[in-house]
């Protein structure tokens, strides 16, 4: 039961963080852009909770959930997105370019995949048991470099787990209008074992991730976890072209927080909710009071 409570707390922290981000964007607290992962929290928590401390996480533009599930400081991510000096990267990176401990994110589709493979090969060469997890989406499959990464990961037996968060929509483009063939067949073509789930329940995701992570770690071979999931929010801040009915149905059927919350004792869920709301509010207020970086920034001439 405590695992379920931990997962619930971890997912709710991500949800509340991102709800705050979208709300406060409207008030001008944040600048630039952001990509929230509401609805996909079970993927972040389910996979990352199964990693060892030394393992490496490579993630993408939709990375807040991965960072928070990994244990990244909430205030520092708020501050990063507010452009403050206390941000994860001192305000240089913003929402989608963060690095903390062994987590690395970048905002360009596809390019992170070979980087993750290279990291895995480096760790393998060191002779330790560290492995790499890289999060990609269904939209990433449009990038050719991804297939170069699959090929070399398999060819050179890189200990890397490709986690596909298949939310069915790339920005506004449905997968059916962008992807021919199947995702499992793509991995099969490169002799990479894959497991496909169609759930937003964090518990089976954790179990599948645990098994695959053990396999990658022990066999020093790549594997793939394909998570059919649902993006409950917009791609970015307000650019959702799906119908109200579609979104409503997704929220009713595919919200990982409701799915797990319905199994918890009401008192437990309420207590966690109260704590998380307080934590997020405090982190937000602290970040808001943090200083901006020193300017002007100058390149050497």
């Amino acid at each position: 039961m405590s695992i379920e409570l931990d997962c619930y707390r971890s997912m709710l922290r991500i949800r509340r963080f991102e709800e705050t981000v979208l709300d406060e964007f409207k008030r001008g607290v944040f600048s630039g852009t952001t990509h929230t992962s509401m609805g996909q929290e079970a993927n972040a928590v389910g996979v990352i909770s199964q990693l060892n401390a030394d393992d490496v996480i490579v993630t993408n533009h939709r990375c807040h959930g991965h960072y928070l599930a990994y244990g990244g400081d909430m205030r520092a991510l708020f501050a990063e997105m507010m452009g403050r000096s206390t941000g994860v990267c001192g305000g240089r990176g913003g929402s989608q370019h963060i690095h903390w401990r062994n987590l690395y994110s970048n905002g360009v589709q596809g390019g992170i995949a070979p980087i993750a493979v290279g990291m895995a090969l480096a760790e393998k060469r060191k002779g330790n048991s560290t492995m790499v997890v890289v999060f990609i989406g269904d939209g990433t499959f449009g990038q050719g470099v991804l297939y170069e990464a699959f090929n070399m990961a398999s060819l050179w037996s890189a200990p890397v787990l490709f986690v596909v968060e298949h939310n069915g929509i790339a920005q506004t483009t449905p997968t059916s209008q962008a992807l021919a063939g199947s995702i499992p067949a793509r991995f099969a073509a490169f002799d990479i074992e894959s497991v496909e789930l169609d759930t937003s329940d964090v518990i089976p995701i954790s179990t599948a991730a645990s098994n695959l992570i053990a396999s990658v770690r022990d066999c020093r071979r790549p594997a793939a976890l394909i998570l059919n999931t649902a993006r409950l929010g917009p791609h970015s801040k307000g650019d959702d072209t799906r119908s109200v009915e579609t979104l409503q149905a997704l929220r009713e059927q595919r919200d990982p927080i409701s799915i797990l919350g319905n199994r918890l004792e009401p008192g437990d869920a309420d207590a966690i909710t109260g704590e998380v709301v307080t934590e997020v509010k405090l982190a937000f207020e602290q970040a808001l009071a943090d200083p901006y970086p020193q300017t002007p920034m100058e390149a050497a001439q």
Binding site: P114, A116, E148, A149, L155
Partner: peptide, 21 residues
Amino acid sequence: LTPISEAGLAGIASGMALRGL
């Protein structure tokens, strides 16, 4: 020895460099 995959190779080399090689 690598396949003919310049973009992927550059990424792999970057990943190796980020992890100490």
